[in-house]
Amino acid sequence: MGIPRFWRETPSRYNLIGTKCGNCGTIHFPPRVVCPSCHRKSIGKMERIHLSNEGTVVSYSIVHDAPHSFKMQKPYAIAMIELEGCCRLTAPIIDCDPSDVKIGMKVEATFRKLGEQEKDDVIHYGYKFRPARSER
């Protein structure tokens, strides 16, 4: 994976930065330039904001056929997560047995390695989620 391609996304991958439409208030992740609801009226008004690092599992799968970067962790849980009060994203659920993941489970963001092309290449970092303290 190209270094700049990953590097330019680090604010959102490290700190869950999204955008809020200055016109209708809808929050998007990752940041968008145009709001799908407000179109032209939103241009120039997409304000960068921090999203909540807590969310709820909407759906999930336990991956057995894993891509190269995730081979060491299989089987692992991957989930669609609804962040509190905003939008959804996709991330692994770690620090629990994959079979403990459930729809409706509360989760919180953590900081992990996402991958590296080869052992001597740049390491990519970003969010993964773990069960919230209330779930442990």
């Binding site: 799968s61 991956v63 056929d65 996402l114």
Partner: peptide
């Protein structure tokens, strides 16, 4: 950038539809 990089495989995305 926002699914595959995080470990979502093509099958796992459909699996999430199935689960839901």
């Amino acid at each position: 950038e926002w699914e595959s990089v995080f470990g979502a495989t093509f099958a796992s995305l459909y699996a999430m539809m199935a689960r839901r």
